[in-house]
Design a protein around this nucleic acid. Structure first.
Lengths: 194, 194
DNA sequence: ATGTAAAGTAAGTAACTGTTTACAATATCC
DNA sequence: GGATATTGTAAACAGTTACTTACTTTACAT
């Protein structure tokens, strides 16, 4: 044997660029040539790291979820009071939403749910996402006893985040209005301490 | 002159088929050849009716909104009691959501918001949609005085409908659970009479 | 009837793009 | 140092697909 493969590491290095490209261009307009150009390599090198373009895309989706989940975790880490967690989570999502351009990738994937792998990846992502939200809001449950069940409220919040992303993207509301809207709806779902 | 053009009429005849095709296959996998095949014509005939494939797609988006809005109108027509309108609207959306496969077209479009025409069409659609929802729920406002402002609640409902479509598509919840979730979240947004 | 413009047929084109292949260079382990 | 497997380069292939063109047929107005 000789020269141990660095494929793993290179995958890790290139993934953010791949991810960003899909975010910028969506699936259709992201060509393998463009991916290679941005990564500073040749196309066939990408094909040594992933079997095909779809795999690159799926890897990107996964990365999107992971990085967001991590962001959340570090956001919640220093808060012991459960009630304030909900508070901060919503405040954070309310304000920083436009930074993630992630919606585009997700929407592209949702338009291709015929594909089995695409479905699986999406299902996994949404399940994890929902679980994460439930964890965060259930700890502060006592503050809003009359609202919908925790699990339902979590789905409501994910829906709210989704439409909120759409609103940002299409400029349907000004930033201030959108923030107020998000806060008002979130409040009616999970509590009043916002 | 001779033989007056029937382009207008033919566009109207073919549009539902075009729309259905995009719903079935999404944008990428809907080829002009397939469109022509399903329409029972040759490709170049489609190109006499619309300038390009994108125009066909935009026409489909518009048709989606129009047909849905019409459905709503006829659904509301025979109800005079405003409070029951909200009730029925939510019940209807709760149950018949899976029938519309419309989400796929919308998601495809949302992934292509760089395109100006695509943006415009989407913006128009969401504005009209929001307006429609506001109209319907504002009449029954008195039943839920402590909820979020009507406009915000409407966005919340649209978000709820969106995630609900995603849940159906990905089978994230069983039908019963999904209906309960929809009802619970909708209730906390617009009122208790559900 | 007939000229004219629309509707229909069939084939083709030109470009794109995901994917592969053949080969050279390089680094690691023995 | 040499064998070997990984990395890099460059070109090309093969299939798809949006869109066009050249032509024939049809139907309407006068």
């Amino acid at each position: 044997m000789s020269r141990p493969s660095q494929a793993h590491e290179q995958r890790r290095n290139l993934l953010p660029i791949v991810c960003q490209t899909f975010r910028d261009l969506g699936y259709r307009r992201t060509t393998t040539a463009e991916l290679a150009r941005r990564c500073g390599v040749r196309v066939n090198i990408l094909y040594r790291l992933w079997p095909d373009k779809k795999a690159m895309f799926l890897a990107a989706i996964d990365d999107i979820f992971q990085s967001r989940a991590e962001k959340w975790r570090e956001l919640m880490a220093d808060l012991s009071d459960p009630a304030r967690r909900v508070e901060r989570l919503i405040a954070y999502e309310t304000q920083h939403q436009s930074e993630f351009g992630y919606y585009r990738v997700i929407f592209t994937a949702l338009a291709e749910t015929d594909d089995d792998e695409m479905r699986k990846t999406l299902i996994q992502m949404y399940r994890q996402f929902h679980k994460l939200v439930v964890q965060q809001i259930s700890t502060g449950r006592e503050i809003h006893p009359n609202g919908p069940p925790v699990s339902d409220a979590a789905w409501g919040l994910i829906g709210l985040a989704t439409i909120s992303n759409i609103i940002v993207e299409l400029n349907l509301l000004g930033p201030r209005q959108r923030e107020q809207m998000f806060a008002a709806v979130a409040k009616s779902l999970v509590g009043d301490r916002v």
